[in-house]
């Protein structure tokens, strides 16, 4: 299978490692070769966490600039920061709910305008799916389920070679019992939302 390359960017604490492990598990279930790599040294201290997931026949576990087929952003300014990973054919899926870094609070930076961010991204890549994933996570009953909402949107976009059912099964095996219901709901809400956001 021709490799499909997915980059996920998030802020520490947003749960992107769980999202990647669910995707990895789903690929294993689907019988698709998968490799992932992540940098999580300072994740718990509020830094940026980046994961690369490569599906299909490739040996590399990291993704070079301009080579992502999909960029999944958990936070709009981080999606923008990672745009160098994209090319003209990349599909970008992003949460629109901002988490301004602390540098903004202490006056060492200005948070970009969200409308402007969307316009910029849309003009450079093949498709942008952008929506407020945090609102849907709340609706699902768990603000921390932004990761599952975005997974739903990713699967709905149809580029990564795992089916929604494989992901549903993986969510069951990989998430804690107490969050299972809200995670499942969040996934379905994200899946539906991305269908509409096209």
């Amino acid at each position: 299978m021709k490799p499909i390359r997915l980059v996920i960017v998030a802020v520490g604490g947003q749960g992107n490692l769980l999202a990647s492990s669910v995707l990895g598990e789903a690929a294993l279930l689907a019988g698709v070769e998968v490799k992932m790599s992540e940098i999580h040294g300072m994740a718990q201290r509020g830094g940026v966490v980046e994961s690369a997931i490569v599906f299909g026949d490739a040996k590399s576990t990291i993704i070079s600039n301009g080579e992502a087929d999909v960029l999944l952003g958990f936070e709009p300014s981080e999606t923008l920061r990672a745009l160098g990973k994209c090319n003209g054919n990349t599909v970008v899926i992003t949460n629109l709910s901002p988490l301004p870094p602390f540098t903004v609070a202490i006056g060492r930076g200005v948070y970009p305008d969200i409308e402007n961010v969307q316009g910029l991204i849309r003009s450079k890549v093949s498709r942008l799916v952008a929506f407020d994933a945090q609102a849907l996570a709340k609706e699902a009953g768990n603000v921390l389920a932004v990761n599952m909402v975005l997974l739903g949107a990713l699967i709905q976009a149809g580029i990564v070679p795992v089916s929604a059912d494989h992901v549903r099964t993986a969510i069951k095996t990989r998430t804690k019992q107490e969050f299972l219901e809200s995670n499942q709901k969040a996934f379905e809400l994200g899946f539906a939302a991305a269908g509409q956001a096209l």
């Binding site: 509020g46 540098t103 930076g109 200005v110 910029l120």
Partner: peptide, 13 residues
């Protein structure tokens, strides 16, 4: 034409 994005250095919890 990407605007400057505020840095997100790790911070003590």
């Amino acid at each position: 034409d990407i605007p400057e994005i505020p840095a997100r250095p790790p911070n003590l919890c």
